[in-house]
């Protein structure tokens, strides 16, 4: 498949995710595909891929991924996509904020025989935690700093 065809495949994949329709991903992805994220390392199989997305929509019911950049060469597609939505459900035990969130995610996708064989995502998990208000970044009190008067 040409670089253009590969890019079209990925655009179609993101269209499915945008409409939250993961029912027929087999049309676009191999059933033994590999999926890698910073949180889960490497997961095997299209069901795991689907499951992670479904979990994400439980945390962010109005989750909207939008492709922003796409570069393709040979059997690889590199992309950047922006995820937007509202943190309404918990995220791995962290309570929701009910506030909007936004995350830029980059993708390295390998295509084999016209379908996705591997999807690796690279993003900053700390940026998610910050938006969940789960990070305390205040510097420690310096040693010898005056105590408040009693």
């Amino acid at each position: 498949m040409s670089a253009e065809e590969n890019k079209e495949l990925i655009r179609r994949l993101f269209d499915r995710f945008r409409s939250h329709d993961t029912s027929s991903l087999e049309e676009l992805c191999h059933s033994d595909m590999l999926y890698e994220t910073p949180e889960f390392d490497t997961l095997k199989g299209i069901d795991a891929y689907r499951q992670v997305f479904e979990e994400a929509t439980r945390s962010i019911p109005d989750l909207e991924p939008t492709l922003e950049e796409i570069v393709a060469e040979g059997d690889k597609v590199f992309a950047i996509h922006r995820v937007r939505g509202t943190l309404k459900g918990d995220y791995a035990g962290i309570p929701p904020t009910n506030e909007p969130m936004e995350l830029l995610v980059s993708d390295v996708i390998t295509i084999r025989d016209g379908k996705v064989a591997e999807h690796r995502e690279f993003y900053d998990v700390l940026t998610i935690l910050r938006q969940l208000d789960a990070v305390d970044e205040r510097p420690p009190r310096a040693a010898g700093e005056a105590q408040a008067p009693r």
Binding site: E39, A134, E137
Partner: peptide, 18 residues
């Protein structure tokens, strides 16, 4: 990490020094 002992769950905060 998610599922790990020190993941800031249930309203806890991860302490970082800036």
């Amino acid at each position: 990490q998610p599922g790990g002992e020190d993941w800031p769950r249930g309203g806890e905060k991860l302490r970082l020094y800036s």
